[in-house]
């Protein structure tokens, strides 16, 4: 499991726009870099990121080798109702990780 840092409020007023900041540990090996023996290291990157709010997708991103190692992605969403936000990263070599956070909306 890759280490993940998620920053978002635990609670919010209904209708408020909340900021979500995510970091995940991943080398984002670009597929363009020569290794020690001179041959190119195979690409190993995260290609997709999704955020769902109570099951409904609210944000999605397609990543390329031009995203830095240990990808940082920050975006916003409207606090509509109490429930669960789910974050999924997918990539090369069957990489797949999902994290969830609950939010209380009042």
């Amino acid at each position: 499991m890759a280490r993940v840092l998620l920053n978002l409020p635990r609670s919010a007023a209904k209708g408020a726009v909340i900021e979500i900041r995510t970091l995940i540990m991943h080398p984002m090996e670009s597929g363009f870099r020569p290794g020690m023996n001179g041959s190119i290291l195979p690409r190993d990157i995260i290609t997709r990121f999704r955020c769902s709010y109570n099951g409904e997708e609210v944000f999605r991103a397609e990543l390329s080798p031009a995203i830095a190692a240990n990808p940082f992605i920050s975006f916003t969403t409207v606090a509509t109702e109490s429930g669960t936000l789910s974050f999924t990263w997918e990539g090369d070599n069957d990489f797949r990780q999902t994290e969830t956070r609950d939010i209380a909306v009042t």
């Binding site: 280490r3 840092l5 920053n7 900041r21 970091l23 995940i24 940082f72 920050s74």
Partner: peptide, 13 residues
């Protein structure tokens, strides 16, 4: 910014 500093991934570990 602890939410953008990649070093915090190691901190958390």
């Amino acid at each position: 910014d602890d939410s953008a500093n990649p070093g915090m991934l190691w901190m958390q570990e």
